[in-house]
Simulated assay, not measured.
Amino acid sequence: MFRFLCSRQLLPLKHRRTHLGFLQQNGFFIVKSFTSVGRLPESNQNPEEEEKHSFAVSYLINSCGLPAKSAILASQRVLFQSPERPDSVLNLFKENGFSNDQISHIVRKHPPVLLSDPEKTLLPKIELLRSIGVSSSELITILSSNPFLFKSNLKKRLIPCYDFLKSVLLVDEKVLKTFKRSPRSFLCDETNTMAPNIALLRQLGAPPSTISFLVTNYPPAAFTKHAKFVEVVHQVMEMGFDPTKTVFVLAIQVLLKMSKPKLESKLEFYKRWGWSKDMALAAFKRFPNCMQSSEEKITKTMDFLVNKIGWPSANIATYPSVINLSLEKRIIPRCSVVQILLAKVLVKNNLALGTFLRPTERIFLEQFVIRFQDDVPELLNVYQDKMSSGCRISV
């Protein structure tokens, strides 16, 4: 709990101006001069306004825990000369589990929150989030990191956004998933962005499942300005993607982040590893995210698979999702196991990359390690030694 020595009675103005800094010692905030921190901004304020400014700075320091510099900046956005309303706001936060540091962060990012009506303005927003399933700990974390939610109008922005998301996603669980991925989804202009974007997808034949996948997994893509969204959707359609498939959504979210020149540059880069443009485009259609990998990541992965392991480059184009896999935690350990099995002729020499790189950890261990333990007892040790994380695996 914040504790402070200064009285809530205002000090004479001439004294308060030299007592705005503080340091925390033995649990108390000690008032001190902050000539090295800065001065109150010069202004033509009348004495009453100056008193409000000084009181606000002192309160922000002593009751909200803001550093002097931050308090001075915050006081330019909020002025008050009585502690009643700010105290009620701080009490609401504390009653709902916010720590002093979290409260300080909220006030620093959004000082006007101190003048909000706790019961009529703040609490209803908290209750709305709880109603869709946001847990207490999640609520505290989300609101502390995104205090701009407190300044959004409940009836004109938050509730309409929630209602629209619910109409598209049908269940609160998916609305909650969307909100967690992008809290700003509750601030979107659903009338001019999300609604026409979703209407376009429906017009093209995208099923509810595909639309739901876009909104819940890539909210910023769904909330893109409509003109840009239309442009990218048409580009994806021209490339031959099927709107009924999930990969259609993946292509949209990738191209929303990439300019056409950037995409062309990445296609050219894959040529260095033996892919023709048609092969690269085919790989993009199988797994659009392969175009988001950095050139450094592509180089390291292809160098290992092609030059060190000897896998044909064309085979990798058939399973482009392996480009995005961790080289240290998946590709190298699993390839090391498979190389031993190939050398001992325990697996076919035409084994496809996807059969051992894409499966889950449990399935890989069952099919390529446990299955051959009697024939190659050292397989598990080889696999564990190659794992960069150093985690030991029980089988």
Rank of each mutant, 00 (worst) to 15 (best):
S294P: 09
R181F: 08
F356A: 01
H234K: 14
L169E: 02
W273P: 12
E119K: 09
I323W: 04
Q25A: 12
E328K: 15
K32F: 08
S313Y: 14
I298K: 09
S99C: 01
S313L: 13
V232F: 13
K300E: 13
D242L: 12
S70L: 14
N100R: 14
R202F: 15
H226Q: 02
R358H: 15
K125M: 03
S36C: 07
K344M: 10
E238T: 08
L379D: 05
S336F: 06
R85K: 01
R16V: 07
L20N: 03
A317W: 04
S212D: 09
T121H: 10
S294N: 09
P333N: 13
P312D: 06
K174V: 04
G38L: 06
K260C: 15
I72Y: 01
I103D: 02
S144G: 05
L158N: 03
I298L: 14
I316N: 03
L73G: 05
P333H: 11
F213E: 09
K14V: 10
F29W: 09
N91V: 04
Q102I: 08
K262F: 13
K308L: 11
K120E: 15
R77D: 01
A199E: 13
S99R: 00
T360G: 07
S152W: 04
S144E: 03
I332D: 05
T193V: 10
V254R: 06
K308S: 12
K155E: 15
Y218G: 08
K262C: 12
D189Y: 10
S36G: 06
L255T: 01
K266Q: 10
P124Q: 01
D375Y: 09
S293P: 08
L40M: 11
H110P: 04
S182D: 13
D117H: 03
N146R: 09
K386S: 14
E138W: 04
S82P: 05
I198D: 03
R181V: 04
K329V: 08
V306M: 13
V233E: 09
M237V: 09
L115M: 01
M239H: 13
Q9H: 12
R3H: 14
N307M: 11
R184V: 14
G240I: 04
A222N: 02
S144D: 05
S7V: 07
D375H: 08
M1N: 11
I211Y: 06
F223N: 10
S131R: 03
P67D: 00
F269W: 03
P112T: 00
P207F: 12
I331T: 12
K245W: 09
W311G: 08
F368N: 08
A222E: 01
K297I: 11
E50T: 08
N26G: 15
P47E: 09
Q9I: 11
A283P: 02
N62T: 03
E366R: 13
V171C: 10
D278P: 05
S43W: 04
V89A: 01
Q102H: 13
Y383V: 06
P333K: 12
S7C: 11
R130Q: 15
E51F: 12
C64Y: 00
D163N: 15
R286W: 13
S82Y: 02
M194Y: 15
V249T: 07
K329C: 11
S394E: 15
V171Q: 09
I309P: 03
S294D: 07
Q367H: 14
P333G: 08
P333Y: 08
F372Y: 10
C161V: 04
P112G: 00
I132M: 03
M239E: 14
